[in-house]
């Protein structure tokens, strides 16, 4: 296996612990930020930014995308792209309705 060009990446324990530590730090950070009581769009932006950083860490290092075939990373990004398409096109309707739910 060792001489094969498809050698699997083995992360060091230190790497993994570092990433885990960073994730826990970010979790605490996001709770702290939410307690600051930032004004409306800012708090959402802050929370989501931290969430995306965490997601990046998990996907890159725990899931190994950093070393893996780029196609697998593309699948993940592609899934997110289609999710955003779904949301944004749906919002084209729901945000621009004259009366969101007329009967209510």
């Amino acid at each position: 296996m060792s001489e094969h060009n498809h050698e699997h990446h083995i992360s060091t324990a230190k790497q993994l612990w570092l990433v885990g530590g960073a994730l826990i730090f970010l979790t605490i950070l996001t709770v702290v930020v939410s307690n600051l009581g930032l004004p409306s769009p800012l708090d959402i932006i802050a929370a989501l930014t931290i969430a995306f950083v965490k997601a990046y860490l998990v996907a890159s290092f725990f899931m190994g995308l950093y070393w893996d075939s780029k196609f697998n990373a593309m699948l993940l990004v592609g899934a997110l792209v289609f999710f955003f398409l779904m949301v944004s096109v749906t919002l084209l309707d729901t945000l621009y309705r004259v009366d969101a739910v007329p009967s209510f």
Binding site: F71, L76, G78, L80, F82, F83, V87, T90, L91, T94
Partner: peptide, 27 residues
């Protein structure tokens, strides 16, 4: 690769719920 394709599935599966969340939150 098969697992990653399956994870794409999972993301869009939860994506429906997130979409509902976003729509109602915006309202």
């Amino acid at each position: 690769l098969g697992m990653w394709v399956f994870l794409v599935n999972e993301i869009l599966f939860f994506g429906g719920l997130f979409c509902a969340y976003i729509v109602f939150r915006a309202w």
